[in-house]
Design a binder for these strands. Structure first.
Length: 740
DNA sequence: CGCTTCAAAGCC
DNA sequence: GCTTTGAAGCGT
């Protein structure tokens, strides 16, 4: 048996928008294997890349690899995942690799932390601030080494005082070793108490997590059934077999509350991975995950690309959440990609939700996924009592939106020292402003949608394209002063109504456009959980996987919003959202109730919510999907055209639609249900335009009965259709479906 | 004829 | 994605 000759040529995938791996010559004395991080020349610059393939032949006229980075290599399952994901989303492999290597790029730059310790006699000139610093240092342990910032904080002085002491020679700086990693989560840290239904599901999941085999399970449990505690037992099982776990959460659900719950069960918090984590901590986490020392990561969708050494379990919490869809750059659905990552890693995947998506339900029903159910609430707690308020009969006074029955319910709740949640999926004060004198409607100059009154900010904002202007005091059309009227409610207006009705109640408005970003939002959510608010008025983000133990009333201000917006998922989304919101009530000791204000109490979505006949709702929706050939039975993809110029985006989208119809032999710009034999294209007329991060997006939906048809078709129109120019970009977003 | 601007074409 | 390149636009 002869030893394998060392590779002389390597194909290196580079994290830029290129699909092919480039070949480089390996310099003598450098041993390279697939997965190794390398620095290679690219054009005039040098860049980081990953060895994708290694060969031992030819390559004389190639450029040479510059060096090898001493980082843990990208393991084969992750490399295959990158390849697969790129093929599935029709994006360049380099762009997918980019998502996996963004963190280690910072790793090399991790700054050394500076600590301080006593080094000499007290300063000649002692001041109160200096004395405080000395006291802090003396009271600390023998090796009193802290960071400068921490020391300054402890001594209640500025960092300048400490610098002064260093100059005097009283203190000296030392390079701190990196903080030792916290101990691994302990599967036996606490005695676990589960009710029989939970215990049964937990045992099944734990068994799968111990199997070292790819499986997918749907954990479907009503709100408050203790899904989290149940899947924690799968985590414990993975820990016992020494394998790692990834818990995927929608970004917003990654709160202190979740981490604390984890810590209660396992003794320590899991490693965190989301946009709010600092570069240094991310670099630390990255290497800990790659080395296998970090056992459990709780992360947002970007954590799908982490370099796990031995991933045994992936939990996707709130699997139905639309937030799992990544829509810029590479478009992917994190839940589905989690399933595929699990497949490549031979890991168990658990999808958890109270209101699973239709495609996951179907996958469970057909036996492709395992199906575990928790039908009732944990610890004998009951589901909230549900009631509809028929707005045709119990109408609120003119210009008000809180009906008398709802107002009474809020009054009872607050009087009882409990919390009430008013849900309305509409940001701002009022969705429409018009002039009482001439009837002029304020519309967006850029995209003709209604301008939404944001009274807190004193502005009119277009929710479609983001255009914003100061709110004028006179009508721009007829010049009349003080004639502008706000029509309809937004959360701000509901909050105003609450203030009028209950002046003494502590109120909080939560909506995604709130200043302060996700960090502030997390704090507010934690604040509500601590009972610092009486009445919360919020948009959909209050629906998301948060536990408010003191909340006993959940009310839907207008349940009909979103039912008639043309989205093929409108009914499913509305049902999921409202079910999640009503499920917020009564999670603690006290029983909860939910009120649904609607003008259509007989609508199937309301019926399902009110009667709790979820099965019938799913049945109806799944049948409708099957008839329409939509996912999970047919395939749907979006061609997303985006540009900084609206006209360019629209024109290009139309041209692409034309190319698509031509390719199907169909009739351009008509809904091609009958014209196209196998591919159906919904043209731009059906596609909403939106502005995200300064770019107009136009979406062209393409429908096909089979995945292969769709992939080939998209490839063809992308190759043969009009080429995007300038700032125009085209991305492909494949809707979730069964792909296993 | 030079200088700026902007989109297109490679990158091994 | 980034860098180079080359053609078009504009002014002297």
């Amino acid at each position: 048996m002869t030893a394998e000759p060392p590779p002389t040529v390597v194909d290196v995938l580079i994290p830029v928008a290129v699909d092919t791996a480039y070949s480089y010559r390996v310099p003598k004395g450098l041993a390279l294997a697939p997965g190794d991080f390398v620095v290679v020349p690219l054009g005039t610059r040098q860049t980081l890349g990953v060895v994708w393939e290694a060969r031992s032949a030819g390559g004389d006229n190639l450029k040479q690899v510059v060096s090898r980075e001493d980082w843990p290599p990208v393991r084969e399952p992750l490399r295959r995942f990158v390849d697969w994901l790129a093929a599935w989303t029709l994006s360049p492999r380099g762009m997918v690799l980019r998502m996996a290597v963004r963190a280690p790029e910072f790793a090399g730059a991790e700054p050394v932390r500076i600590g301080l310790r006593r080094a000499g006699p007290p300063p000649t000139r002692m001041t109160p601030a200096r004395l405080r610093v000395m006291t802090v240092l003396d009271s600390a342990e023998a090796e009193a080494v802290t960071s400068k910032k921490a020391l300054a904080e402890a001594a209640n002085c500025s960092a300048g005082v400490i610098d002064g002491l260093v100059d005097e020679g009283t203190l000296e700086t030392v390079a701190l070793p990196p903080d030792p990693l916290p101990p691994p989560p302990d599967p036996d840290a606490t005695a676990v108490v589960l009710d029989p239904a939970q215990a049964e599901a937990a045992a099944a999941l734990a068994a799968r997590a111990a199997e070292r085999r790819f499986t997918v399970s749907l954990l479907e449990g009503v709100t408050g059934s203790g899904k989290t505690e149940t899947y924690f037992e799968a985590v414990a099982s993975a820990l016992r077999s020494g394998r790692q776990t990834l818990i995927l959460l929608p970004e917003i659900a990654l709160t202190a509350q979740f981490l604390d719950r984890f810590a209660e069960r396992f003794g320590v918090r899991p490693a965190e991975w989301h946009s709010g984590v600092s570069v240094r901590r991310r670099a630390r986490a990255w290497s800990g995950i790659a080395s296998g020392e970090i056992k459990v990561v709780a992360g947002a969708r970007s954590s799908l690309f982490l370099p796990f050494a031995d991933l045994g379990l992936i939990v996707v919490d709130e699997e139905h959440e639309a937030a799992y869809k990544q829509d810029d750059g590479v478009s992917y659905h994190a839940r589905d990609m989690a399933v595929m990552r699990g497949r490549f890693e031979e890991a168990a995947v658990v999808l958890a939700s109270a209101t699973p998506s239709l495609e996951t339900r179907v996958n469970a029903e057909t036996g492709r996924y395992g199906h575990l159910r928790l039908a009732s609430r944990y610890a004998g707690r009951s589901m909230p009592a549900l009631a509809a308020v028929d707005m045709r009969r119990d109408a609120p006074p003119r210009g008000r939106w809180i009906s008398p029955p709802l107002a009474a319910a809020i009054a009872d709740t607050v009087a009882d020292g409990k919390q009430a949640l008013l849900f309305l999926n509409r940001r701002g004060y009022a969705p429409l402003t018009l002039c009482r004198s001439c009837g002029h409607r304020f519309t967006c100059g850029q995209c003709s949608a209604w301008m939404v009154d944001h009274r807190f900010r004193g502005a009119l904002v277009c929710h479609l394209c983001g255009y914003m202007e100061r709110k004028p005091d006179h009508c721009p059309h007829c010049g009349e002063v003080d004639a502008l009227v706000a029509c309809g409610p937004g959360v701000e207006r509901i909050a105003e109504e609450v203030a009028t009705l209950f002046p003494d109640a502590r109120r909080l408005v939560l909506s995604s456009d709130m200043p302060g970003g996700t960090e502030r939002l997390r704090q507010e959510l934690d604040g509500i959980a601590r009972g610092e608010v009486d009445v919360v008025v919020g948009t959909q983000l209050v629906a998301k996987g948060h536990n408010f133990p003191n909340l006993t009333l959940a009310a839907i201000v207008d349940a009909d919003v979103g039912l008639a917006n043309g989205d093929p998922r409108a009914a499913e989304r509305t049902f999921q959202l409202l079910q999640q919101v009503t499920g917020r009530a009564g999670r603690g000791e006290a029983p909860g109730r939910a009120l649904i204000q609607t003008y259509q109490p007989d609508h199937p979505v309301m019926r399902a919510l009110l009667t709790g006949d979820v099965e019938r709702f799913y049945r109806t929706e799944i049948d409708a999907r099957q008839r329409a050939g939509l996912p999970p039975f047919g395939r749907l993809a979006g061609l997303i055209v985006s540009a900084t110029d609206r006209h360019a985006a629209e024109t290009h989208a139309r041209a692409l639609a034309r190319a698509a119809y031509a390719a199907t032999g169909g009739d351009p710009l008509a809904r091609a249900a009958d014209a196209a034999p196998s591919i159906e294209v919904f043209g731009p007329a059906e596609a909403p335009i939106a502005m995200i991060r300064g770019r107009y997006r136009f979406r062209l939906l393409v429908k096909a009965p089979r995945s292969a048809d769709l992939q080939g078709f998209l490839r063809r129109i992308l190759a043969e259709g009009p080429k995007p120019t300038g700032s125009l970009r085209v991305a492909v977003d494949v809707e979730p479906q069964s792909f296993l």
